[in-house]
Nucleic acid binder design. Structure first.
Length: 568
DNA sequence: CGTATAACTTAGTAGCCTGCCC
DNA sequence: GGGCAGGCTACTAAGTTATACG
């Protein structure tokens, strides 16, 4: 039995909210009936540069003999050569998929010769590309076409939507290459094909100046759908899914949506107790489906798990979420480490990131899990307008930040210590949401360097203290102005060094605790920015310490809107 | 009404860039 | 002025949810 959570929560689109007023830029009325915009004009996408064949001295070898490849086959070979250092190219599935797709690009003569990937030698090509990228590094800014890039950005990187010039997020078409799925992906290594103008659908206003396809080519279609937000779309050949060009997070259309998302989460705050009581009730239901739904919702709420939609087997890596968790991902312990009714989760979630957690649960939940004989957990009933599974993640993340900030911030602290508190609150959320990262390659080393600095600072401090002591003794003896002043300045020096030392120590703690945890994802997607803005205002922290330029642009609405008493 | 797919958000990382230290 | 650490951004895969469709 599998019931998608999508059907269980009733989803109602949020209609008109008030205008999005950021510095009075947005004065238009909000549209109704699903209209997203009234006017949209843009220049279309920027295509990947055409393939530039290799110089003749760069050779591909088959079975030890140099071989000149046709341009089509050569291009695909370069994709592999560029990835030669990557562990991807050692994986069987990757090699198998690549070889199969590569052969499709070969001429019949090439196909007849090249029958075994093991006999292919790409190392000459690989060296060539390495040298190229070294050469590029050595180039000056002008050689690197910085100006040209800026021109392209200005020309193609913006659009006009409803009288405002808006930044586009991804105006470049994805270049061809070899597909790199995450985790154990069955399609890794497949050829991601080059996108041509005839693959492209343009979306813009009827009354706008339409983007021109490159000379001698045609668009697949030009449409005028103001009920969607994308400007350009094409179908990708690996999964057959549609890719879009859309606006930057700083745009009105994204900002409003983001704001709405947090407003929905705040509405959940108002009724979350009721919902929690209800799912507790539902654990006792006679109907198995209702009980299981209630258990699933409990985990979505308590552990901030994702919904876990069904996915097609063999098309993607085998990853799961709450509703698609299988019996092999859960272990039940009636008693463990002195706690009763312990559940151990161990599975791969989104992006094949491991979720591991061992948590005590209520007896009823445990009993329900014991009776789970079929494959999937199920889901929940209609509880609140606009409530979907991911709202729980947003809600729990934001409320956790708010609580942690209250708990951890000490108004006596200096700015770096307060920022450490902020980062710790942020970290609590990242842990809840299981946002991980690979430990930076240079982690151990940079940690050591920092420790050396700290040691040096400590020595400096004890020296300064000693000097202060002798200055004091000196002043006591002489009792003149000059020696008093010397004491004062030594005192200040000690203070300054103490502060510097503390700053370094704080930095070390922060970095150590952050080794495997990524803060960015929660900051960007789960934490109501108004909480952070309010916190900054309350404790006199410059907003720049919390949000960089891009983030300030994305959260312009919140920076403008929230004062220090904002409550999520 | 249920499924398929379009639309849009969330995710980690490669590699560039900047600014600091020596 | 060169090297390197760390921050930032671009990129695109991988989710969830909304909507279309038969």
């Amino acid at each position: 039995i599998y019931l998608s959570i999508v059907h269980i929560f009733q989803v109602i689109s949020i209609k008109t909210v008030s205008c999005f007023l950021v510095n009075c830029r947005w004065e238009e009325e909000r549209y109704t009936d699903g209209v997203k915009w009234k006017f949209l004009e843009h220049k279309g996408p920027v295509f990947a540069p055409p393939y530039d064949p290799l110089p003749s001295n760069v050779k591909f070898y088959y079975d030890g003999k140099p071989m000149k490849l046709s341009p089509e086959a050569e291009e695909v070979a370069t994709f592999f050569a560029k990835m030669l250092d990557h562990e991807y190219t050692t994986k069987d599935i990757f090699r198998k998929n690549f070889f199969k797709d590569w052969r499709k690009e070969m001429t019949s003569e090439e196909k007849a010769i090249i029958t075994d990937l093991k006999k292919c030698n790409f190392s000459d090509m690989s060296e060539y590309f390495k040298a190229q990228s070294e050469a590029r590094k050595a180039m000056t800014k002008e050689d690197k076409q910085v100006k040209e890039n800026e021109r392209i950005l200005q020309e193609y990187g913006f659009c006009i939507m409803d009288n405002h010039r808006e930044r586009i997020a991804n105006f470049r078409i994805e270049p061809p290459g070899l597909f790199r799925g995450r985790g154990d992906h069955p399609k890794m290594g497949m050829l991601k094909r080059r996108i041509r103008p005839q693959d492209i659908i343009i979306n813009c206003s009827k009354d706008s100046k339409h983007p021109e396809p490159p000379p001698g080519t045609k668009w697949k279609e030009v449409r005028h759908d103001n009920k969607v937000t994308w400007l350009v779309s094409w179908t990708e050949n690996i999964q057959g899914s549609i890719k879009y060009i859309m606006l930057n997070p700083s745009s009105r259309i994204k900002g409003e949506k983001d704001w709405q998302k947090y407003e929905t989460a705040r509405r959940l705050k108002k009724c979350v107790d009721r919902i929690r009581n209800q799912y507790r009730e539902d654990w006792k239901s006679k109907e198995m489906r209702i009980r299981q739904r209630a258990v699933a919702l409990y985990f979505i709420d308590k552990l901030a798990l994702r919904a876990g939609n069904e996915k097609e087997e063999g098309e993607t890596a085998d990853t799961v979420g709450c509703c698609s968790v299988r019996v092999e991902h859960i272990k039940l312990y009636p008693e463990s480490d002195g706690q009763e009714y312990v559940v151990e989760f161990d599975f791969l979630g989104k992006d094949s990131i491991r979720y591991y957690n061992k948590v005590p649960v209520e007896k009823r939940v445990f009993k329900n899990l014991q009776h789970l004989h079929h494959k999937y957990l199920c889901t929940m009933t209609e509880l609140m307008d606009g409530l979907t599974a991911k709202v729980f993640r947003t809600y729990n993340a934001s409320i956790t930040l708010q609580q942690q900030l209250k708990q951890l911030t000490n108004s006596e602290d200096n700015v770096p210590a307060k920022i450490l508190s902020y980062n710790r609150a942020n970290r609590a959320v990242a842990i809840l949401c299981n946002h991980q990262r690979a430990p930076p390659k240079t982690f151990e080393k940079s940690m050591q360097n920092l420790q050396t600095k700290i040691d040096a600072k400590r020595d400096q401090l004890s020296d300064a203290k000693r000097e202060l002591k002798s200055a004091k003794a000196d002043a006591k003896m002489r009792k003149d102005e000059k020696s008093k002043k010397a004491v004062e300045s030594k005192k200040k020096a000690v203070q300054r060094i103490e502060e510097q030392l503390m700053k370094l120590e704080v930095q070390a703690t922060d970095r150590e605790e952050n080794k495997q945890i990524a803060l960015g994802t929660s900051k960007l997607n789960y934490l109501d920015p108004r909480i952070s803005v309010a916190w900054c205002k309350k404790f006199g922290i410059p907003i720049e310490k919390i949000y960089n330029k891009t983030q300030r642009e994305k959260f312009a609405w919140a920076i403008d809107m929230a004062d220090e008493d904002f409550e999520f």
